[in-house]
Structure formats: structure tokens, C-alpha cells
Computed example of a mutant assay.
Amino acid sequence: MEQQDLIIIDVFCKEYHVEINLIEELEDFGLIEIHQDNGLKYIQITHLPQVEKVIRFHNELNINKEGIEVVLNLLERLNQLNEDVRHLKDKLKLYE
């Protein structure tokens, strides 16, 4: 993993006005993924949308960690169901 694909947690927290404790709690709960290298903690740039979503759920909607986990699971299921429906519609078009 290259350095350019990572954001230092301290920098992320300053930019997003988030406490480092919150990021560590979210990682401990398994809601986000943090990488550690040379004593510094990082977030992958590709994970930013997920991290931003989790932080919005927590800060703006006041959802606790357990609730965030449920919401993320439901969103994932909804996306899967939408994909299944799209696939089935494509199959049906073959018979029209």
C-alpha cells in the first residue's frame, strides 16, 4: 500500500473536526478500518466515503455504534436486493 493512498488519522480528524477517540472507538467496534505503519495510524482513501458516512450517522443523526452497524447492514442488504432486481429484470428482457 502506497503512502499516497493513505490519510493520517490526525490530519483526517482536524479536517473533519472529529475527535481521535471517536475514530478509535469506531475501529474497535469494527465499523471502520485503520492501518498502522511506523507508529502512525492511517485511513485508506478508498475507505473515505464509508468513514464519512459513519461519522455523519454518529454526529448528525446521533446514532450509536450499534445502530450504525444495523443501518450499514441494512444499506448493504438493500444494495444487494437492488442488484438482484436489476439482474432479474435483465433476464426477463430476454423473454420479451
Score class of each variant (00 low, 15 high):
residue 35 H to W: 06
residue 24 E to I: 13
residue 34 I to A: 04
residue 70 V to G: 01
residue 87 H to Q: 10
residue 95 Y to S: 05
residue 27 E to Y: 12
residue 94 L to M: 11
residue 17 H to C: 03
residue 55 I to H: 12
residue 70 V to Y: 04
residue 18 V to D: 01
residue 11 V to P: 08
residue 54 V to D: 06
residue 12 F to Y: 15
residue 80 Q to K: 15
residue 69 E to R: 10
residue 43 I to H: 10
residue 21 N to V: 09
residue 22 L to W: 12
residue 66 E to C: 04
residue 6 L to V: 04
residue 53 K to Y: 06
residue 75 L to H: 03
residue 33 E to W: 01
residue 54 V to N: 06
residue 73 N to D: 09
residue 32 I to Y: 03
residue 92 L to Q: 13
residue 83 E to L: 11
residue 23 I to V: 15
residue 43 I to K: 02
residue 13 C to S: 12
residue 66 E to L: 10
residue 5 D to P: 00
residue 63 I to N: 00
residue 32 I to K: 01
residue 60 E to G: 02
residue 8 I to Y: 08
residue 47 H to W: 04
residue 17 H to T: 10
residue 67 G to I: 07
residue 13 C to D: 13
residue 87 H to L: 12
residue 10 D to A: 04
residue 3 Q to I: 07
residue 32 I to W: 02
residue 16 Y to F: 02
residue 70 V to R: 03
residue 86 R to H: 08
residue 61 L to M: 14
residue 31 L to M: 06
residue 10 D to K: 02
residue 35 H to P: 00
residue 15 E to S: 08
residue 39 G to T: 13
residue 18 V to M: 07
residue 13 C to V: 04
residue 72 L to T: 01
residue 16 Y to E: 01
residue 42 Y to D: 01
residue 96 E to F: 05
residue 14 K to F: 00
residue 5 D to L: 02
residue 60 E to Y: 03
residue 30 G to P: 05
residue 84 D to R: 03
residue 57 F to E: 07
residue 95 Y to P: 09
residue 79 N to M: 09
residue 36 Q to G: 02
residue 17 H to Y: 07
residue 81 L to F: 10
residue 75 L to S: 04
residue 4 Q to R: 14
residue 56 R to H: 12
residue 38 N to T: 12
residue 10 D to P: 06
residue 83 E to P: 02
residue 82 N to C: 03
residue 32 I to A: 04
residue 40 L to R: 15
residue 22 L to D: 14
residue 91 K to F: 05
residue 88 L to K: 10
residue 77 R to I: 07
residue 44 Q to M: 06
residue 57 F to K: 02
residue 63 I to W: 04
residue 36 Q to C: 05
residue 32 I to F: 04
residue 85 V to R: 05
residue 17 H to M: 02
residue 65 K to H: 14
residue 95 Y to I: 02
residue 30 G to Q: 07
residue 83 E to T: 15
residue 67 G to D: 07
residue 49 P to N: 10
residue 90 D to A: 11
residue 48 L to R: 13
residue 70 V to C: 03
residue 10 D to F: 00
residue 95 Y to D: 00
residue 92 L to Y: 10
residue 43 I to S: 05
residue 22 L to M: 10
